[in-house]
Design a protein around this nucleic acid. Structure first.
Lengths: 340, 340
DNA sequence: TTGTAGGCGTTATCAA
DNA sequence: TTGATAACGCCTACAA
């Protein structure tokens, strides 16, 4: 068994109260006593029991994140960078980060959220990849459980979030392509229930309108945010004999990377015969052939910042700016850097 | 405040003992009582408090993993797939997964491991990316703290692990290239302190010997397991006027992807002028241009299996096969599929 | 089959 | 400035 506060107290012939207070930095402890306590604690390798502390103080000093996806999804660079940001932020605030996994709108997802809010292994939760009518948001808000999110919903509920103005981003991307003479600009999106899809697709449409290009149903495909999904969707778009697109905008970089492969396999030279662009600005986009034009979002920093917001939320402190909207940065690379 | 066992008991006019036992499936509870308890618990949304349970049972029902890397560079697909496997396995065993981040051999790393072993928020730890003389292994073994690892060390300590026979894998890869007529086969590795580097580099050398090719110092470069690192290292190798390699074997896929870019930028056509291969078999390798030859390791499944081993370790049960060695699978794709 | 009671290791209240 | 004591919510010997 590990050494407990009682052991330290016994050795010093002090009460556990005093030891506890000395260690927690209360100022009603004699300096000399505190010094003795601190030394002894270090010598004996005493660290307070997490569980006991949690039970007594009724908080976990931990935050949680549930990776929204099924096994293949996880290898999404977005998730890993996001987790990295959460992990670092948590560590720097002396918090634990709890991770679980659950496919969106599955029983498993319901179960984890229920367990976490009831059993309270975490003080707050970070949400990502929101859905337009996200039951998680409803549920957490109803139960008054602290949470922050990456993105928003279409529910009439107020909560702190950070989101990218991907709508403007996609409009900008369309303009970029239209400026280079493209007219047949396709879009490969995600399932409609995701907020990100609603936003990006709307941005795409607005971009077309602004450029005076008519929207065409046949130039739109739905995919699942993965490379393979992008590969398949792009394949179908490209195989439409009369309607093959001259440019493809993808809902994220992974989709774009799949699309590039589909185009290559059909003998199209990307950055010459066809333009392809993505969204996220992942590391991978810089190393594709040719390098991929993308809208970069600061995933790591956003995660970091979300943790700060969540902590204020947990502490019940007001959040200066509870609805942060950031502009993605258009990074033009060779995959679209040509005119027709 | 969340609903406690006491609330459930009160509502049913039972003792908390009975409620506890009914819920935990003890067989000395009347079926009718159990049914009532279970219904009431569900209706009231009762979930046992994690902290109380931990304190009482003296275990955390959680396992921990510390991502070995520096922010924000650990968006390594290996890590994310590994975490996905750990997360899924943990969930399926009703465990929490704690994640932290710390650069190898940093103060932060020491601190996290100390805290986790003393404060016991986790019952066991999963280690990855081992070092030849890994202080973590020494530390955990000394403190008799349950752990399992992906890979081994050169320390004289016994612990359960799963590892890939990447040495044989790399030898096989060299043979594959030699069989196609390549002689000037370069190797881009990782820092020498990592076990994976020792293994893979040895495999490379053994492969050369077997193929009757002389080892050349100038064909070896050290990198940092990232795309950018691979890009730079490959650039240097390729710019050696008299010694430019005709094939490059990389310590992992990320490095290979960077190397591909470096080769392309120098006008080399991969899969015709030069062969490039990686290791890991990440999703990304399938979508590069051209698709990347690689040695595939089952990251997700390995993580899953490691959790099972760890659980036995924690329970003090014997592990049937504590030293699992798996063969990576050579996947030949276009990046090397040509003869000279 | 069900209930009583003690204690896991802390922190917080109150008294000395 | 320090100490005794009562929880926090749960599990489990033991008693009924």
């Amino acid at each position: 068994m590990a050494v407990t506060i009682r052991d330290v107290a016994k050795r010093l012939r002090l009460s556990i109260t005093t030891v506890s207070r000395a260690l927690d930095g209360y100022d009603d402890v004699a300096d000399k006593t505190r010094a003795r306590v601190i030394r002894a604690a270090r010598d004996m390798g005493y660290v307070p029991s997490r569980a006991a502390r949690q039970l007594r103080r009724q908080r976990a000093d931990a935050i949680g994140y549930i990776i929204p996806g099924r096994a293949p999804y996880f290898t999404d660079p977005f998730s890993s960078e996001f987790i990295a940001g959460l992990g670092d932020a948590a560590t720097s605030h002396n918090l634990d980060l709890l991770i679980s996994t659950a496919p969106p709108d599955s029983d498993a997802e319901l179960y984890v959220y229920t367990r976490w809010t009831q059993s309270r292994p975490v003080d707050g939760i970070v949400l990502s990849r929101l859905r337009l009518k996200d039951w998680r948001v409803k549920y957490l808000a109803q139960n008054d459980f602290p949470f922050v999110a990456h993105g928003h919903t279409h529910l009439r509920l107020d909560f702190p979030y950070i989101e990218m103005d991907s709508r403007a981003g996609f409009a900008q991307l369309v303009k970029h392509l239209a400026d280079r003479g493209h007219r047949r600009i396709a879009y490969i999106g995600a399932p409609a229930k995701f907020t990100l899809q609603a936003e990006r697709f709307t941005g795409y449409q607005e971009g077309l309108t602004a450029a005076g290009i008519a929207f065409e149903e046949t130039l739109v495909a739905e995919s699942d945010l993965t490379r393979t999904g992008g590969y398949q969707a792009a394949g179908q778009l490209l195989d439409q004999a009369r309607h093959a697109p001259a440019a493809i905008i993808c809902v994220n970089d992974l989709t774009a990377i799949g699309a590039m492969r589909a185009a290559r396999e059909r003998g199209r030279v990307i950055g010459r015969d066809i333009a392809i662009a993505g969204y996220d600005g992942t590391d991978e986009s810089e190393h594709t052939d040719p390098p991929l034009t993308t809208l970069k979002q600061p995933i790591y920093d956003t995660a970091h910042r979300l943790v700060e917001m969540l902590l204020r939320r947990i502490a019940g402190e007001p959040i200066a700016d509870p609805h942060v909207i950031l502009q993605p940065e258009l990074i033009v690379r060779q995959s679209t850097a040509f005119s027709v």
